[in-house]
């Protein structure tokens, strides 16, 4: 991957790629796997980008797809290798986020279902309901209600520390 490609197409979206990958992983090793796969997919599918949507939308969709696919694969592995617990979170893993509030929020997001995680991540990135629906593949009609429900659930998990 050339440095130019990285700088032009990945670096401007590094924040959201990290946030999404961290929301679906529990260890630094997994995070690196997800992150690299996302970058690889972005590079590989650049030619397929049809400019009908914004590049950032394309990146979100790709990142979520990679994360959801990897999570599914990991889940399958867990059922095969019963004794390995993949859901354990590394002690130092969350300390990568230097803000305590952000860390708490990220941990709370991880407690949501895979789909709810995807929706709230896009909502927090200020994507419109239409864009969220387009990326997730749901109808935009009930996105708003769903977001409110997810926010209430997050509030509960965070026990009033964040509103």
């Amino acid at each position: 991957m050339s440095k130019d490609f990285y700088k032009s197409y990945i670096y401007p979206h590094l924040g959201i790629i990290i946030k999404i990958c961290r929301a679906y992983t529990n260890t630094q090793e997994d995070f690196e796997d997800y992150f690299q796969e996302v970058c690889l997919q972005i590079w590989r599918s650049k030619a397929n980008f049809n400019e009908q949507s914004a590049w950032s939308t394309w990146v979100y969709r790709l990142t979520l797809n990679v994360c959801l696919t990897f999570t599914r694969k990991k889940k399958r592995n867990v059922t095969v290798i019963d004794n390995i617990e993949h859901n354990e979170i590394d002690d130092d893993y969350e300390s990568a986020f230097t803000s305590e509030s952000f860390r708490m929020l990220n941990e709370a997001i991880k407690k949501l279902s895979k789909l709810d995680r995807a929706i709230i991540l896009l909502y927090l990135e200020e994507k419109s309901y239409k864009e969220i629906a387009e990326i997730i593949g749901l109808s935009s009609g009930n996105i708003g209600t769903r977001i409110n429900r997810i926010k209430n659930r997050l509030k509960k998990i965070l026990n009033g520390k964040i509103y």
């Binding site: 990568a96 803000s99 952000f102 929020l105």
Partner: peptide, 13 residues
């Protein structure tokens, strides 16, 4: 608010 934390407090090592 979660929105503010998400936007303003994201600092990553």
């Amino acid at each position: 608010s979660i929105e503010n934390i998400w936007r303003q407090e994201f600092k990553f090592n």
